[in-house]
C-alpha cells in the first residue's frame, strides 16, 4: 500500500490557477508536436527545427532579428486609457493592467529605429500577447508618430502586423484609427518615402483593412492567417466549410495581394535588399 492516496479524482486546479510551464528550456511545436530546445529554436530564427513552423514571436524578437545591433525605441510614453469605461466580463482598465503585467510591454505595438545592413529603418511591430495585438488609440497614435518621424527624417517605414484587428473596448475610437493611419500613410506616399508592410500570423480585421494592405510592398511570413473577416465569422455566415489553405499567406499571394512570402531566416537580408534598392542617391 502506498504512502499517499488520492482522495479526489481528476484535476482539481482551476484553469486560472494553472501554472504555465516555465519558458526557457523547451519548446513544443504547436503544429508537429515535436520538442526542441530553446537554443535550437533561437539558432533556427525562432522557427520549429522539425517542421519550419514560424512560431508567434514578439515585437522585440523582430527587432533582434532585423537590426544590426543597437536600436532606439520610440514613442514609448503613450498609454491606453479606459476613456469609455468599457466593461464586459471584466473592465477594460483591468485587461490593460493585466496585459502590461503579463507582457512587460506598454502596448500592443512597439516602434524602434535602427539599422538593417547599415541602412536606417523605422520598424513598428505588434505583440499578439497584448490583448490580441488589437488596435486602439495608442496603436494608431504610435503609427502616426512613426509616420511623422519617417517623413521628417525621410527614413523608410516597416510595419509588422500581428493582430486580431480593432480593439472593441475602444469602440469608434479604434475604428477611426483605420482612417487615421491610412490618411497619414497617404502623406508618406505623397512624400515618396517607402513603406513596407509585413504581415505575420495572424493579421485580420481593421488592421488588414487599413495600413497592412497599403504597403508599397506587402509581404508575409509563410502560412500566416491573413484576412478581413475571421474564418469563424465567414463559416457562420456562409454555413459551409472553408476550403483548405483559405486566408493563408500563400492564398493571398495567389490572389494578388502580396508581393512575396519570406522565410524568417531570410527576412533581414530581404529587407536589406529592399532598402538598398529603394535608396536614392542624394
Amino acid at each position: 500500500m502506498g504512502w499517499f492516496k488520492r482522495l479526489k479524482d481528476g484535476i482539481q486546479t482551476a484553469t486560472r490557477n494553472k501554472k504555465e510551464a516555465p519558458e526557457g528550456l523547451w519548446y513544443k511545436c504547436k503544429r508537429c508536436k515535436e520538442t526542441s530546445t530553446v537554443k535550437e529554436l533561437r539558432e533556427n530564427f525562432l522557427k520549429c527545427p522539425h517542421c519550419n513552423y514560424h512560431i508567434r514571436i514578439g515585437s522585440h524578437d523582430y527587432f533582434d532579428l532585423l537590426f544590426d545591433g543597437n536600436f532606439e525605441e520610440l514613442f514609448d510614453d503613450l498609454r491606453s486609457k479606459d476613456f469609455l469605461e468599457f466593461s464586459d466580463l471584466q473592465p477594460y482598465h483591468k485587461r490593460l493592467d493585466d496585459a502590461q503585467k503579463k507582457t512587460s510591454l506598454s502596448e500592443a505595438i512597439s516602434v524602434a529605429v535602427g539599422k538593417v545592413n547599415r541602412r536606417k529603418l523605422i520598424v513598428a511591430a505588434m505583440d499578439f500577447k497584448f490583448i490580441g495585438g488589437s488596435m486602439g488609440s495608442v496603436m494608431g497614435q504610435r503609427i502616426a508618430q512613426a509616420i511623422d518621424h519617417a517623413l521628417e527624417t525621410r527614413t523608410p517605414l516597416m510595419i509588422i502586423s500581428k493582430t486580431g484587428g480593432a480593439r472593441m473596448m475602444e469602440s469608434a475610437f479604434s475604428l477611426m484609427q483605420m482612417a487615421k493611419t491610412s490618411a497619414k500613410l497617404s502623406e508618406l506616399a505623397k512624400a515618396k518615402v517607402p513603406y513596407f508592410s509585413f504581415l505575420t500570423d495572424p493579421t485580420t480585421g481593421g488592421v488588414t483593412a487599413s495600413f497592412a494592405m497599403l504597403g508599397d510592398i506587402n509581404f508575409a511570413e509563410p502560412e500566416a492567417l491573413i484576412g478581413f473577416a475571421g474564418p469563424r465569422v465567414i463559416k457562420e455566415t456562409i454555413k459551409r466549410d472553408l476550403p483548405e489553405g483559405f486566408q493563408t499567406s500563400e492564398f493571398l499571394l495567389e490572389h494578388g495581394f502580396l508581393d512575396f512570402i519570406v522565410d524568417r531566416k531570410d527576412l533581414k537580408s530581404r529587407v536589406g535588399d529592399l532598402l538598398a534598392l529603394f535608396a536614392v542617391k542624394e
Binding site: 483605420m178 491610412s182 488588414t208 483593412a209 487599413s210 495600413f211 497592412a212 494592405m213 497599403l214 484576412g227 478581413f228 473577416a229 465569422v233 465567414i234 455566415t237 456562409i238 472553408l242 476550403p243 483559405f246 486566408q247 492564398f251 490572389h255 494578388g256 495581394f257
Partner: peptide, 15 residues
Amino acid sequence: PGIEAEERGQAEAIA
C-alpha cells in the same frame, strides 16, 4: 464576410 470577398480582397478594397 464571404469566401469570394476574401479572394477579391475585401480588406484591400476598404484600405
